[in-house]
C-alpha cells in the first residue's frame, strides 16, 4: 500500500496535544495531596507523566513543523463527508439521552446504511430494525441490561 502523506492539520493537532499535556500538567499541581509528604503525594505521578507527555508532544510538534516545510503533497484531512458523519453521530449520542434507545439507534443505523449507500431504502429499514431488535433482545433478555 502506498504511504499516505498528511499535511493539513498535523501541526494544529500536535499543538492541541501539547495544550492537553500542559492542561494536565497544570492541573496536576493543584491536586489535593492530603497530609502526605511530597514523595508519596497524589501529585507526583501525574506531574511526572504529564511532563513526559508534554515533552513527547513538543518533539512530535517539531517533527510535524519540519515535515510541513519539506513536503508539498497535501491531503485534505477535513473531508466534508467525514465531518458530516461525525456530526450526525454526535446528534445520535445526544438523542440517546432524550429518545428511547431503540428509536435513536434504529434511526442512526438507517442513516448510516443510506449514508454508505449500502442498501436501498426498504432493505435498509429492515436491516436497521433487525440489528436493533436482535441486539436489544440479546442484551436485555440474556444479560439483564435495561435500556
Amino acid at each position: 500500500m502506498k504511504a499516505v502523506r498528511y499535511k493539513s492539520g498535523e501541526v494544529e493537532a500536535n499543538i492541541l496535544f501539547l495544550l492537553v499535556a500542559m492542561f494536565f500538567l497544570t492541573s496536576s499541581f493543584f491536586i489535593d495531596a492530603g497530609n502526605y509528604p511530597a514523595w508519596s503525594s497524589a501529585k507526583i505521578v501525574p506531574i511526572l507523566l504529564s511532563s513526559v507527555m508534554a515533552i513527547c508532544s513538543a518533539s512530535s510538534l517539531m517533527e510535524a513543523i519540519r515535515k510541513r516545510q519539506v513536503t508539498k503533497a497535501t491531503e485534505n484531512v477535513f473531508q466534508v463527508k467525514v465531518l458530516t458523519y461525525i456530526g450526525v453521530f454526535f446528534v445520535y449520542i445526544g438523542a440517546l439521552f432524550l429518545l428511547p434507545f431503540w428509536l435513536a439507534s434504529a434511526a442512526f443505523l438507517l442513516f448510516s446504511f443510506l449514508f454508505w449507500k449500502s442498501l436501498p431504502l426498504v432493505k435498509a429499514i429492515v436491516a436497521s430494525a433487525a440489528v436493533v431488535a436482535v441486539s436489544l433482545t440479546l442484551f436485555s433478555k440474556v444479560f439483564y441490561i435495561t435500556f
Binding site: 445520535y92 443505523l109 454508505w116 440489528v131 441486539s135
Partner: peptide
C-alpha cells in the same frame, strides 16, 4: 454493510 452495525456495536 458491515460498518454501520459495527458502529452500533460500539455504542
Amino acid at each position: 454493510i458491515l460498518l454501520p452495525p459495527i458502529i452500533f456495536i460500539t455504542v
